[in-house]
Nucleic acid binder design. Structure first.
Lengths: 239, 239
DNA sequence: TGACTTCGTGTGGAGTCAACACTATCGTGA
DNA sequence: TCACGATAGTGTTGACTCCACACGAAGTCA
């Protein structure tokens, strides 16, 4: 903030945003955490997979740029994004000095259609932890992805981000399976149920869900107003 | 990361770094947390106080830019900086669209001399929480400062950042006073002493420090090698 | 030598956390 | 229709962690 003149005309680093967008997919008993990658259609790294993202436009907010790039490249429009970090290591982009701001987001698997468009040849979901490893990524995106995933896992216990991934009414088993998929480890069922119910922003809904040859499950809704009221109580969930 | 051509020539946002540098100053019984501000010598906001910072140069790493700007503007060279967040709200800089990456750091009050130079008219330490409030800050720096302080307070229990602020040998009372100043609240003395000693990377040094008409205090050193070995044990201190 | 100041130390009670197993309810198929 | 399989739903206990709290020790100074 110390330029002598009115404007600053020296060579500037470029500014990009990259989005690590996660979803969960699969049957309740085998939910898999997935990340959205795009196959690059242009140089550099043509043909390699990368996080969706792109250049920030003049007079565009960072979060807005992240949303725009995500929508343009993948058709995903309704994702709540959170900033992870900014990275500007020289040499990370062969086209020139580039500072990227990484965002992380979560979307429901059924609330979006992949519509790769424009200069993006293809967009695909990849299992984060599966039998086959992620493909090699362009730029330093492997490292960005790792940081984004760590951020998501730290964050998912602190805020009700995950309720966006569930239908309006859901069962506690669904909620638990969702968190297990994100965290990548199993949770104790009784402890889990006790805690989330003590939080006080789950409202029992009418009816149950019959979904197989077994006892039906109670349905719940996320009571957003209760959550906002008792935001003080919403200290980190110990997951 | 989707430019069609080799380079990207559209108007770019400028990239700056800003540093919220904190120190503690005062007598042991009344340490005050202070932040380093500069009085701007140029438009815009000439005459207002602001965080030190400036434009990132071509092919310069973000952290390196933060260190350079800090050194150029204030003469402070040995500060370990940590990234807080990136902010790029349109309109936050009247000169044009500017994305800033905020760093937070801590320095010992006696290990630096303020050497405002170049285009900086003045640099001064201000009490963060004192009888007189901070002056109005340029740009959105008040908000950046708040976020940086929150980051520091979250972080100070997780890593031994604060040992940089102490002399080679220090007493537990000094360490406690330091943390109290940073956190802005008192800590229970016995709990504090028990915890830090259980961490296992304080090594008792020879001798004591006589500093008044009372019982002298044992001296300790920070055993960095022990810390690195038992980094696993270095889970968050419950401060 | 008495007063003052900070140093240094341990326990008990409350709350939190993880581990753990059985009954309830439904569908299915013999 | 009855036995089986599969998931839903529910409490307790022990270990650990956290916080609150008070008094003797060791030095200086008047």
């Amino acid at each position: 903030m110390t330029t002598p003149g009115r404007t600053y005309d020296w060579p500037r680093p470029a500014v990009t945003v990259d989005v690590a967008l996660f979803t969960v997919r699969g049957s309740l008993s085998a939910l898999r955490l997935q990340v959205l990658l795009m196959r690059r259609g242009e140089k550099p790294f043509r043909g390699k997979w990368a996080l969706p993202g792109g250049f920030v436009r003049e007079d565009e907010d960072l979060a807005e740029a992240a949303r725009r790039e995500l929508a343009e490249e993948t058709g995903v429009t309704e994702a709540s994004l959170e900033q992870t970090a900014a990275v500007g290591t020289p040499g990370r982009d062969p086209r020139g000095h580039t500072v990227t701001v990484v965002y992380v987001g979560l979307v429901a698997p059924d609330r979006h259609h992949l519509e790769p468009s424009g200069d993006s040849a293809a967009a695909r979901w990849f299992d984060v932890a599966g039998p086959e490893p992620l493909p090699p990524l362009a730029f330093d995106h492997a490292s960005l992805l790792g940081a984004a995933l760590a951020h998501l896992r730290r964050r998912v216990g602190e805020a009700p981000v995950c309720f966006d991934l569930l239908p309006e009414e859901f069962t506690l088993s669904e909620l638990q399976a969702l968190l297990e998929a994100i965290l990548g480890r199993p949770l104790d069922r009784r402890n889990f149920r006790r805690r989330v119910q003590e939080l006080g922003f789950l409202r029992a809904a009418e009816g149950t869900r019959r979904e197989g040859a077994h006892r039906p499950a109670r349905l719940y809704r996320f009571a957003r107003e209760e959550f906002e009221r008792h935001a003080a109580r919403a200290r980190a969930l110990p997951f």
